[in-house]
Simulated assay, not measured.
Amino acid sequence: MDFIRAIILGIIEGVTEWLPISSTGHLIIAEEFIKLNQSAAFKEMFDVVIQLGAILSVLVLYFHKLNPFEKRKSEREVKYTWRLWLKIIIACIPAALIGFALDNWLNAHFYNFVFVAIMLIIYGIAFIYVEKNWVPQHEFSVVDIDKLPYRTAFLIGAFQVLSLLPGTSRSGSTIIGGLLLGVSREVAAEFTFFLGIPIMFGASLLKIYKYFGHHSITFTQLGVLLVACLVAFGVSMLAIRWLMGYVKKHDFTFFGKYRIVLGVILLIYAGIRAIIH
């Protein structure tokens, strides 16, 4: 049964990691109803490490753009690739420093059902406000990722710090940040994908290090983790392609509405559960 649950959780991770609706939040919600028959420590590690599958999909889909050693690239293109990686690293500094320092504290205080619901609603409202009130009054000054200024990249990274709170969404916070900074939807979404590579690799390695510092892993647990990662990889490939096609013709208002509706449903459920128990 845990392998079936791993497949379901892998699908949820693959869909929600790149859409601005919070993958961590959805996994916390899913595990309210789909519980792995494993230790709490393993499940905590599982929720983060499963993201490795999603990361690999970005590396595959954007291998040419992200590979500075591509022989077919001109000298100018190689230079742009190195600059892109520098921007990614600069943008990841705020979340890496704060996330490393506050990882245990955040887990202890904010990884719960109600908090996720509240953050879904708050950022849903933010998406609608930004799309309906801010974007129409401001032109996009950055429509090409190669021309994304270093300062703007760093500020988008600063917005990424907000995603350390579950239910916020890493892609949601960075896309909102990008829109407020004058970055087009396509560039904001694409840069968000790239920011996930070092951040999620780092978060996964940190969780693995902490887990193996106190626990061992069984063959079944390893299998469950690998299955979930593989499913997340395949589904992420589809989700990324779909999102990039979607933002060329639509804004992010739909995702804002989805977040609000889901958040309200979850708060109602939490209230009913509290009354019953």
Rank of each mutant, 00 (worst) to 15 (best):
M1L: 15
F3E: 12
R5I: 14
I7K: 08
L9H: 09
I12R: 13
G14M: 10
V15C: 13
S22V: 02
I28Y: 04
I34R: 11
N37I: 09
K43H: 03
E44V: 09
M45T: 10
I50L: 14
Q51M: 06
V60E: 03
L66K: 14
K71G: 01
S74V: 04
S74R: 09
E77C: 03
K79R: 14
W82P: 00
A91D: 02
I93D: 08
I93P: 02
A96T: 13
F100R: 13
N104D: 15
L106A: 08
N107G: 10
H109K: 15
N112D: 14
Y123K: 03
G124E: 11
A126L: 15
F127M: 13
I128H: 09
P136Y: 11
H138A: 10
E139S: 12
I145Q: 09
K147Y: 09
T152S: 14
A153Y: 07
A153M: 07
R170D: 00
G172I: 02
T174E: 06
T174F: 02
L179Y: 03
L180C: 04
V183N: 01
T192N: 13
G196Y: 12
I197F: 08
F201K: 08
L205S: 07
Y211I: 08
F212S: 04
H214W: 06
A232C: 05
W242S: 09
W242V: 12
M244P: 00
G245K: 15
H250F: 12
F252E: 08
Y258T: 01
I260N: 04
I260F: 05
I260R: 04
L262P: 01
L262I: 11
V264T: 05
I268W: 02
A270D: 13
A270K: 13
A270I: 07
G271E: 10
G271M: 12
G271D: 06
